[in-house]
């Protein structure tokens, strides 16, 4: 499920184990076949994306396909100035703000839920089933359900009510599942030790549980942000009159046939990479600070 926290666990596990036989000597033929497959996969994964990043730097004559026509930032300027491409700047703004709210709520609620799920409690299987249901339910159907529900109660759909809720119904199950994986490496004896040394419940959470889980919580935050920032199906019918970024991109794919679309792709990818960088940087910072022994 989670890329970041589990891969760290995996790293620890793998270091202590030996590689599969033969771990020395010449490699079997399957290695070369699979290495070829892997290379093919990575090229297919990144190749197309790199193509559109390159194509977004064409000049005014640029089209949707190769060859490159000129080199300029024309389509980026176009993206943020032209009226025909819609309100891209506003959409960015709305999407990022909404994603931040979703992230904060996702981290807090996922953490609390994972705390609850550490033991069995009456109804835990029902909550778990609801969570999985919410994760796999068709997003558009859910979005329309939320829209109809708001309609029925007589509330206007808007980003911070209906869209927020609809997105949380998708980011939270993800977040909780990631927290499960993170929590599985939390030793309950740490909590008991803190209690034994006189810590209250709140002190235990603040001084032991949260700091120990910090890298995992950053990973949950990264999930929350990305899933919200990229959310389309659930937001379509719940965002109200103004578009979020994915909705803006969707309407552009249907109307716009210029490299503006690629420029938008380049810009959102840069933002995604900044977010990934920030998350990884935070995790590295936390680990470093521990290593240095500062407190």
């Amino acid at each position: 499920m989670s890329a970041v926290p589990q891969s760290v666990a995996v790293a620890e596990a793998r270091v202590t184990k030996h590689a599969i036989a033969p771990s020395r000597g010449s490699r079997p033929w399957t290695f070369y076949v699979l290495a070829g497959l892997f290379t093919f996969y990575v090229i297919a994964l990144y190749g197309p994306m790199i193509c559109i990043y390159i194509l977004s730097f064409q000049d005014v004559r640029g089209g949707l396909v190769f060859p490159m026509k000129g080199l300029s930032l024309h389509w980026f300027v176009d993206l943020f100035t032209q009226v025909r491409t819609g309100d891209v700047k506003g959409a960015f703004d709305r999407s990022i703000k909404l994603a931040i709210v979703v992230t904060v709520i996702t981290v807090v609620v996922s953490f609390m839920s994972a705390m609850a799920f550490r033991r069995r409690f009456p109804g835990d299987n029902i909550v778990f089933a609801l969570m999985i249901g919410s994760l796999v339910a068709p997003g558009l159907v859910l979005g329309i359900g939320v829209g109809l529900l708001f309609n029925a109660i007589g509330i206007e759909t808007s980003p911070y009510t209906s869209a927020l809720g609809a997105q949380l119904s998708w980011t939270l199950p993800f977040g909780v599942l990631v927290m499960f994986a993170v929590m599985s490496r939390f030793n309950p004896a740490w909590e008991e030790a803190a209690r034994d040394l006189g810590a209250s419940t709140w002190q235990t959470i603040r001084l032991v549980i949260l700091p120990v889980l910090a890298p995992g919580l950053v990973a949950v935050a990264l999930f929350g942000f990305t899933l919200s920032y990229d959310e389309f199906a659930r937001t379509l019918q719940t965002a109200g009159p103004q578009n979020t970024l994915p909705l803006e991109i969707w309407s552009m794919t249907l109307n716009v046939t210029s490299p503006s679309l690629y420029a938008l792709g380049t810009v959102t990818t840069i933002i995604s990479f900044l977010i990934i960088g920030a998350a990884l940087g935070t995790i590295v910072f936390i680990q470093k600070r521990r290593g240095a022994g500062a407190s």
């Binding site: 890329a3 994964l45 990144y46 197309p48 994306m49 193509c51 559109i52 194509l55 949707l64 396909v65 190769f66 990264l222 990305t226 920032y229 990229d230 389309f232 994915p246 991109i249 969707w250 794919t253 679309l261 938008l264 792709g265 959102t268 990818t269 995604s272 990479f273 977010i275 990934i276």
Partner: peptide, 15 residues
């Protein structure tokens, strides 16, 4: 790539 936009990744096949 999981952390980048799905729609962008889809349209990137067009060229």
């Amino acid at each position: 790539p999981f952390w980048t936009s799905n729609i962008i990744r889809m349209i990137s096949w067009i060229p």
